[in-house]
């Protein structure tokens, strides 16, 4: 397939990028790695008047300490994250969740911020960011704001990111001491996206669960925190019985997706099964 024509600029600075966005208005679209956007443009499913390429902006790259957690530039690639000793040390969950995204080419080009901004309902990164309590630094020519990832996703491919905004940074606070983490997924074999993906961060204190976050992707029209699972687990002993009871709530309150790979009944059952498995694994890793 061949794309329709479009304009293209590659600004040298973030301010220039913001000015470009403002100038081209709603027809403009940001591109970083392009591995979600370009296929859609080739299929002519996304009509883009003007592309603003932020993939090489140094201001959007890099991984640094942030209050004991990490701030990751939005245009940092999967490959850069996977190769980072800091990430490996502080957030092994990101390594576990991202190391099988796409293939090597996708990981070399795809960016964390791109994935979050794209808001694909079956991407892994949104579930990971939810479990990690991440927040996002967004900037427009009018100023900047930070938003929690929890609440950022509104629907399939729809997020809280405004058309004139650039995601600058993903900020991940330090996890509680001794937290165990896990990401398990049931992969759709054709696309590699998750039919169900469950990210968990869990900590115990004095024999009971003192912190738990469960991010679920692939199940509904956007990634969500399984709050009923979390509230059932909090204060429990985090044993198998408690985990199984909590996992039963994995899809509570969600309009569960149905497609040729997983109908509603199967997907709902797998949300529970993979939530149970992921929580079990995180609990076993918690110290």
């Amino acid at each position: 397939m061949s794309m329709a024509g479009f304009g293209y600029t590659r600004p040298a600075t973030l301010d220039e990028a913001l000015a470009d966005l403002a100038k081209h208005g709603p027809d403009a679209k940001l591109i970083a790695g392009g591995h979600s956007l370009l296929p859609l443009m080739k299929m002519r499913l996304a009509s883009v008047g003007h592309l603003v390429d932020i993939g090489r902006l140094r201001e959007l790259k890099g991984i640094r300490d942030w209050n004991g957690g990490l701030a990751i530039g939005a245009a940092t690639t999967y490959r850069e994250v996977l190769g980072s000793a800091l990430v490996r040390d502080r957030f092994p969950l990101l390594i576990e969740g991202l190391d099988d995204i796409g293939d090597i080419q996708v990981r070399n080009r795809g960016t964390l911020g791109g994935s979050l901004a794209h808001a694909d309902p079956a991407s892994d990164m949104p579930a990971l960011a939810l479990a990690l309590d991440a927040e996002l630094l967004l900037r427009s020519s009018g100023g900047e704001r930070t938003v929690k990832v929890d609440g950022f996703f509104h629907g399939a491919f729809v997020s809280d990111l405004h058309p004139d905004e650039v995601m600058v940074e993903i900020r991940i606070p330090a996890s509680p001491d001794g937290a165990g983490t896990s990401y398990v997924e049931l992969t759709q074999p054709a696309s590699g996206y998750s039919l169900v993906g469950v990210a968990v961060v869990l900590a115990k204190s004095g024999g009971t669960v003192s912190h738990v976050r469960v991010g679920v992707t692939g199940v509904a029209d956007h990634a969500y925190r399984a709050s009923a699972v979390e509230s059932t687990l909090m204060g429990s002993d985090g044993g198998s019985a408690a985990i199984a009871a909590a996992a039963a709530h994995a899809a509570d309150g969600q309009e569960v997706n149905s497609d040729i790979h997983a109908d509603r009944e199967y997907r709902t059952a797998m949300a529970t099964a993979f939530t149970r498995r992921s929580v079990e694994s995180a609990a076993a890793r918690a110290t």
């Binding site: 299929m43 759709q188 074999p189 054709a190 696309s191 040729i260 790979h261």
Partner: peptide, 11 residues
């Protein structure tokens, strides 16, 4: 054809 691309047809 719902399995109309490699996104849905599993090789």
């Amino acid at each position: 054809l719902l399995s109309g691309s490699m996104l849905d047809y599993a090789m």
